[in-house]
């Protein structure tokens, strides 16, 4: 659980922030207040979404962690629970929602599907994990994770938030973070970051078929 390397930032601290004594003492209050009012986005994808809703109900009650304010709008939410199978048709919308969320923002990949494709991975219209497109902070295995397993993941997220310091936080850097390019639905899902690779692969000369056959026979 203690993965400190994730929290270090390569950003430079702005000069007006440097050397201010009050920041270090404020850090604790800052982290404490942030971790106790994390607002998730009301966004369900598939089966896991039902367990997420159950989490909001009385038996498991995420209000105890200050998370009960589920916001339907990405503009008001702190973290996104990707709860379920991510299909190719849905990826552009998820990336767009992620881009619309204000910093600081976190992503929780709930369940096997969101983490790495899940049982539907072999199918033609499911992507192998949302982390191929947007950065993910916490992975929760399970299909579906029980509400308690999800709570465990959310507590892990608050622990991560608790460790963040004003000095090293990325969102106070001068440069605004670049938006993640939204994928496009073509003959298959196209990630704009991979256009060059796609072109290169699709314009390769077709390999002659005979050697493939002999290989198969050998195998």
């Amino acid at each position: 659980m203690s993965d400190d390397s994730l929290l270090s930032s390569s950003y430079e601290i702005p000069p007006e922030m440097q050397g201010t004594v009050s920041i270090t003492s404020l850090d604790k209050v800052y982290a404490w207040s942030r971790k106790n009012s994390m607002w998730p986005m009301m966004f369900g994808l598939a089966c896991c979404a039902i367990e997420m809703i159950v989490l909001a109900a009385s038996r498991f009650d995420i209000a105890r962690f200050g998370m009960e304010v589920m916001r339907p709008s990405p503009r008001q939410s702190d973290f996104l629970i990707v709860s379920g199978t991510v299909t190719k048709k849905m990826v552009p919308q998820i990336v767009r929602l992620y881009n619309q969320m204000p910093e600081p923002k976190y992503v929780v990949a709930m369940g096997a599907c969101a983490s790495g494709g899940g049982p539907f991975k072999e199918g033609y219209s499911v992507v192998s994990g949302i982390d191929k497109f947007i950065p993910v902070d916490v992975y929760i295995p399970g299909c579906p994770p029980t509400p308690q397993a999800l709570l465990n993941g959310l507590i892990a997220l608050t622990k991560k938030v608790d460790k963040e310091r004003i000095k090293t936080s990325e969102w106070y850097a001068k440069e605004p973070e670049a938006a993640v390019p939204v994928p496009v639905l073509g003959p298959d899902l196209m990630d704009p970051r991979k256009y060059a690779l796609i072109y290169e692969q699709t314009h390769r000369p077709i390999e002659p078929e005979t050697p493939v056959e002999t290989e198969q026979k050998e195998g």
Partner: peptide, 12 residues
């Protein structure tokens, strides 16, 4: 055991 959330899925 369901408490296996992690910060990375490299070891999954």
């Amino acid at each position: 055991d369901y408490e296996i959330a992690s910060y990375s899925r490299q070891n999954n």
